[in-house]
Design a protein around this nucleic acid. Structure first.
Lengths: 113, 113
DNA sequence: TGCGTATATAAGCATATTATTATATATTGA
DNA sequence: TCAATATATAATAATATGCTTATATACGCA
């Protein structure tokens, strides 16, 4: 494992992951980068709601963003101090690849990694 | 791994773990059973606050209780459906054995497992 | 430069969470 | 049986969280 994590940081991290939308976002990003509007489609949520979830993940250092034209592409930040720990957690969760496949079918896929 | 966990259950579980007191409780229980009054000492928290945290863990099935005289001894529920997942998470966290050792020194240790 | 699309942010509101205070229940031992 | 100790629960208050609405910013293209 990478860094050892203290209880306070661990609890804060787990609290951040303890939301269905954010956890699913991260599980998606484990397999593929994704832009904001795709998340909006996937979760059938409002754009600001999605943006606010992403901001929390970004503020904590879990994800990073890269602008591609008008789209903001989010990806996992592999340099995150406790990435190994997060990875451990995420890889046990069910793949969310179907979510993006469905977007693909609807012709709503944006990013291509 | 034991059962596969869906995203909703996983998020709820992580939310439950995403509290410093509850997470530390579980990390302690990974090594030793513990009674309520010991938790009260360790966390320097009120007895009702501790009881309410334990109730949440119990309601979710993560811990079980056993009365020993006037004391209620809590332990991890190894039959919990996602115990393997929780174990995976907890074992990466720093040992909290010192917490109980300190109680021992103060002559405040109750349970002996 | 101006419009359309994508995204971020701020303010306000509804709900959830956690602690406190007060009280009830259970057990032990005199 | 009564008092002391341990624990649980209920009501309430403080705080945190997540959503909505409104608005601002950034980019691409005509």
């Amino acid at each position: 494992m990478g860094q050892s994590i203290d209880m306070e940081q661990a609890a804060n991290l787990l609290k951040l992951l303890g939301d269905k939308t954010r956890l699913t976002m991260l599980r998606i990003l484990l397999e593929q980068d994704c832009c904001v509007c795709e998340f909006v489609e996937i979760f059938e949520a409002s754009q600001p709601a999605i943006s606010q979830h992403l901001r929390k993940l970004r503020d904590a250092g879990l994800v990073k963003e890269n602008r591609r034209g008008q789209w903001m592409i989010y990806s996992l930040n592999q340099q995150y101090e406790y990435f190994d720990y997060v990875h451990l957690l995420l890889k046990e969760l069910p793949s969310q690849a179907d979510k993006l496949e469905e977007l693909e079918k609807l012709g709503k896929r944006i990013s291509c990694d």
